[in-house]
Computed example of a mutant assay.
Amino acid sequence: MTRDLAGFRIKSRRLAGGGSVVVSVLGDVDIATVPQLDAVLTEAAADAGHVIVDLRAVTFMDSSGLRLLVRKHQSARDSGHIFALGKPVSETVQRLLELTAMDRMFVFDDLP
């Protein structure tokens, strides 16, 4: 599935074996695009026990984007699922994660 919004794109794909879904994000993750990303991540979590978010092509992320990732991580943990960020992430996202010390909280998986 692919969703587009003025330079922002989300694409999800199921990995072989069916237990994992990769959600790839391109563009700015901000207050305008978070609702679309939230919907795709919610759908992916309902379909798979392991969600990997590919943030290599994210050019900007504000606090609403970070808050969404934290919320999805906590929800997955509470339900016994895995919510991981694909590594590597973009430099922009890496800097945000390091500044907020969230790089220590998230699980990071190598991207397939």
Rank of each mutant, 00 (worst) to 15 (best):
Q94G: 14
S90P: 11
E98F: 00
D78E: 15
A101P: 00
L85N: 01
G86W: 02
A44Q: 07
G18A: 05
A32C: 00
E91S: 14
G19D: 15
A6H: 15
A48C: 03
L55T: 09
V29M: 10
V93K: 06
V21G: 02
H73I: 00
V107M: 08
G7M: 08
I31G: 06
G17W: 05
F108S: 04
R77C: 09
G7T: 10
S63E: 12
F60S: 09
V34L: 05
L96W: 00
S75R: 12
V25P: 00
R67F: 01
R56V: 11
L96F: 07
R9P: 00
S75G: 15
V34S: 05
R104L: 12
D62C: 04
D109W: 00
K87M: 06
S64Y: 00
L55R: 05
A44N: 07
A16E: 14
E43H: 11
S75Q: 14
A48F: 01
L15M: 01
D28S: 14
T100I: 06
D103L: 04
D30H: 09
L99Y: 02
T59Y: 08
K11D: 13
G19M: 05
S24Q: 13
L55N: 09
V58E: 09
A32G: 05
R9V: 12
T2A: 14
R95E: 15
M102Y: 12
V21S: 07
D4N: 14
V51H: 04
E91K: 14
K87R: 12
F108G: 02
S20A: 15
A32E: 13
G7S: 10
S90M: 09
R77W: 13
F60G: 07
S64K: 02
S24W: 13
H81T: 10
A101G: 07
D62V: 07
V34A: 05
P35K: 05
M102L: 15
V53K: 06
F8V: 05
L5E: 13
P112R: 01
A101V: 09
S24G: 12
D38T: 10
L99R: 01
Q74K: 14
I52E: 03
H73G: 01
L96M: 15
L41R: 08
S79F: 00
F108Q: 04
R95N: 11
V21F: 07
V89G: 03
I82W: 09
V70A: 06
V21P: 07
L26C: 10
F60M: 10
S75L: 14
L111I: 03
V89L: 07
T100P: 07
A6L: 12
S24Y: 14
I10Q: 06
L68G: 06
R9Y: 08
M1L: 09
L66Q: 07
G27D: 11
L37I: 10
A84E: 06
G27F: 11
A101I: 00
R95F: 00
R14C: 10
G49H: 01
L85Y: 02
R56L: 11
R67T: 13
S63W: 04
L37P: 10
E98K: 13
P88N: 03
R13I: 03
